[in-house]
């Protein structure tokens, strides 16, 4: 497994654990109320699970498993590292914006995510091909 996939998949696992922890707190709070402010974690829960976990898990796995451009050639991996950094920063900004009422984090976070996906699409595009071509 290439190093970029290792970092993306492990980051995805961390988002998964944290996102589910936020969800578990809200579910507990729904059954046995603890603090009404826990509902502020809803966007954090959704963001960390849909983007931080599932999207990043899919991108990290795709980078690992798609046909290579040649023996151990994955394309310009710098694009992937930039995407990894942007995606994780973007998820954290968006995830923190609602519970901390930092609305200024939302747009930069979303822009980082879309840039990250564009970079990964650019990196993976030529690897979506038939084997041995």
């Amino acid at each position: 497994m290439p190093r970029l996939s290792v970092w993306m998949l492990r980051a995805a696992l961390l988002h998964f654990g944290l996102g589910v922890s936020a969800g578990a707190l809200m579910l507990w709070n729904k059954g046995v109320p603890l603090d009404a402010r826990l509902w502020l974690l809803l966007n954090t829960h959704v963001e960390m699970l849909l983007v931080g976990w599932m999207l990043q898990f899919a991108l990290g796995t795709a980078f690992w498993i798609l046909p290579r451009l040649g023996e151990r050639r994955y394309g310009d991996v710098r694009l992937g590292w930039a995407a990894c950094l942007l995606l994780n920063t973007g998820v954290l900004l968006v995830a923190l914006s609602a519970p901390l009422n930092l609305t200024g984090f939302l747009l930069p976070g979303r822009l980082m995510q879309i840039l990250a996906v564009a970079l990964m699409a650019r990196l993976l595009w030529p690897r979506v091909k038939a084997f041995a071509t």
Binding site: S21, W28, G31, V32
Partner: peptide, 12 residues
């Protein structure tokens, strides 16, 4: 409601 706490802890 306590069942939701059980569910949350199991999934967590």
């Amino acid at each position: 409601g306590w069942l939701l706490v059980v569910s949350a802890l199991c999934q967590l």
